[in-house]
Simulated assay, not measured.
Amino acid sequence: MTIKFNPIAQLKYILLMFLAGLISCEDDVREVYLYKKGTIEATASNTAIKSGETITYTDSSTKIRAIKWTFQGGAPGASIEPNVEVKYTKGGTFTTTLEITHVDNTIQKKTFTIEVEAPATPPIVIPADALKIYSDNPDFTKTAPVLNWVSSNQFVIKEVADDGYEGAFRNFTLPAAAPATEAKWAMAILQFVNFTDISSYTYINMAVRTTSTGKIRFRMKDASNTGYVEFDATSNLYGLKRDGAWNMVKIPIADYKKQNVALDLTKIKDILVLRSVDPEDVRALNNYTFDIDHIYLSKQ
């Protein structure tokens, strides 16, 4: 069967279909938003500080998937936290880098240049009547008989080329792993090759740097007798501090004799013996690290 429209009915049908199409298109209209990428934003509380000071870094980036900070020359050396306080203990020019991975896996980086002023160099004090024991100062011309550093038990002795009180220095530290740390005590010796008369001197002086909290004895020995002075972590006796900075320590030689009257100062063999203190166990404390430099005898 064939249906025929008259011209007027046909026109009405076409208009009806057109209006229906318009209504249908309105229902399909959608709002379109352009995608906004994440941004990298961060600040540093300071970029020029003195050694020992801290800088606070703050990340305020957007659309973050992961954060990674890298702090050259600082402690900590890295972090994944948005807010970090970093301490700088040595002078120099350092770079801090923030790497942001955004939610769309794109990566952006931001860097900071940090200037750290080095600590002031301590004054080199050399009495005219001093007897050199260990020094890198070329003006320190009076030299004792030949000496040797000897690791008697556990201490690993290293000479470090720079960052000393006056240049190179000796570092005494314990090995980190067994079997080297099986013994509970540690000792190292600065020893004259020949017996030496030090009876005309009043003080033994040395620069010491440490953060160790362990007790330590500085001993002196003739052929058979030993005298010593003992340091704990809190007393700052004779100027020995545990603050991680170089400190000059000045010990009356009479105090070695006071501890042992039999000590013969005219025939000293071991001028400086570093010895841990029983019953402390260096394996438990694990922080017996001492830097030694600028050792000399003086009369005042």
Rank of each mutant, 00 (worst) to 15 (best):
I3V: 15
I3K: 15
F5D: 13
A9Q: 10
Q10E: 14
Y13Q: 10
I14R: 12
L15E: 09
I23D: 09
C25R: 11
V32N: 09
E41M: 15
S51H: 03
S51C: 07
E53H: 11
E53T: 11
Y57G: 03
Y57M: 14
Y57D: 04
T58H: 09
S61K: 00
T62S: 15
G74N: 09
A75G: 10
A78I: 10
E81G: 06
P82D: 04
E85F: 06
K87Q: 13
T93M: 06
F94P: 00
T96K: 06
T97D: 06
H102P: 11
N105K: 15
N105Q: 12
N105D: 13
T106V: 11
E115L: 07
A120W: 11
P123Q: 15
I124R: 13
P127R: 01
P127S: 03
A128Q: 13
D129T: 15
S135T: 08
S135H: 03
D139L: 13
F140R: 05
P145K: 08
L147E: 05
V150D: 04
S151C: 10
K158H: 06
A161V: 08
A168C: 05
F169S: 04
F169T: 02
R170G: 00
N171W: 02
N171L: 08
L174W: 04
L174Y: 03
A176D: 04
T181H: 11
E182S: 07
A183W: 11
K184N: 09
S199V: 08
T210G: 12
I216C: 03
M220L: 14
T226N: 03
E230I: 04
A233M: 13
A233V: 14
S235D: 03
R242Q: 15
A245V: 05
W246C: 10
N247P: 03
M248A: 05
Q259P: 07
N260M: 01
V261I: 04
L265C: 03
K269D: 14
K269T: 14
V273W: 05
L274F: 06
S276R: 08
P279S: 10
P279R: 09
A284Y: 10
L285S: 12
Y288F: 09
Y288R: 02
D291F: 00
D291N: 02
I295N: 00
Y296N: 02
L297K: 03
